[in-house]
């Protein structure tokens, strides 16, 4: 099956709608897999590709990191305070930190980082690719694939991982400070609590979920490169975002199944 989309006819004569859909999805999966493999292939990073990747990573992650980290820390501090005060009023203060870590750090932050990167860098990449595709660019060619597709995928993937890890660790620190204040005497209990939350199942599942969220955000815009030029010109944002949301929900559901069942 060719990865190039230039060979896709305007009207496929064979099969019904479902067949065409499945064929298109299979082509997308192959193309996304090729993009991810290219991202993790050192031989792919020639000098121009490295420069393009560095530019994309700086745009997706470096520039977004301070603002996102600040927002995450503020939201984490407010949420921790609210949860701590509410739990204390019910005599459940020993559960407040655990609830914050389980809900905010494990569940909400990865999803928020993925959506943030998708809205900021993903839509930008989608717009650039769709405009290129509308002009007839063939992203199946190795040069365009390496120059314009792989850097964006690597950048978005790395951005999700960096934003999630950084903000998560910062929120862990801020939650400790909000509950205990600037004192080292709660560290033992807090470390034990973190150890209880990130048990041998939760920690790997969380890391895997972050990686899969990054991969989903990275490959979601790629669907447009498989579209015909006329279709890419008609606007692909909604389809790409719907696909992304479907992927994110699927990953989240799978993670919940792994964690709790």
């Amino acid at each position: 099956m060719p990865l190039s989309s230039s060979a896709v006819p305007r009207h496929t004569p064979r099969g019904g709608g479902l067949t065409r859909l499945l064929r298109r999805e299979a082509r997308f999966v192959l193309y996304a897999a090729a993009a991810l493999i290219a991202v993790f292939s050192p031989a792919n990073y020639s000098r121009p590709v490295r420069q393009a990747t560095a530019q994309a990573v700086c745009f997706s992650a470096w520039q977004a990191l301070p603002g996102y980290a600040l927002l995450s820390v503020l939201a984490g501090a407010v949420l921790t305070h609210i949860v701590a005060v509410s739990a204390a009023s019910y005599g459940l203060s020993h559960l407040a930190l655990e609830a914050v870590v389980r809900v905010y750090v494990v569940e909400l932050l990865p999803l928020a980082a993925a959506l943030f990167v998708a809205m900021r860098s993903g839509l930008d990449a989608l717009g650039r690719l769709s405009r290129e595709r509308a002009r007839g660019a063939d992203f199946g060619t190795p040069a365009l694939f390496r120059q314009q597709v792989a850097p964006g995928v690597a950048a978005n993937l790395l951005a999700v991982i960096v934003l999630t890890l950084t903000s998560g660790l910062l929120v862990l620190a801020v939650a400790y400070l909000v509950v205990y204040g600037v004192t080292p005497w709660g560290l033992t209990y807090y470390t034990r609590l973190v150890g209880q939350v990130f048990d041998p199942v939760t920690a790997p599942v969380l890391l895997l979920k972050i990686f899969l969220f990054g991969a989903a955000v990275a490959i979601a815009p790629l669907a447009v490169v498989l579209d015909a030029p006329y279709r890419a010109a008609s606007g692909s944002e909604m389809r790409a975002m719907a696909r992304l949301l479907f992927l994110l929900v699927t990953i989240e559901g799978a993670a919940l199944v792994l964690l709790h069942f």
């Binding site: 560095a54 530019q55 700086c58 745009f59 470096w62 520039q63 290129e132 002009r135 060619t141 365009l144």
Partner: peptide, 25 residues
């Protein structure tokens, strides 16, 4: 995949370069 060069007439204009992007990455 066929190895072909991008058409310079249809290429998207590049984003303004970010200084020290390699080191930052």
């Amino acid at each position: 995949m066929t190895d072909s060069q991008p058409d310079p007439l249809t290429a998207e204009p590049p984003r303004p370069p970010i200084p020290h992007a390699g080191a930052k990455t």
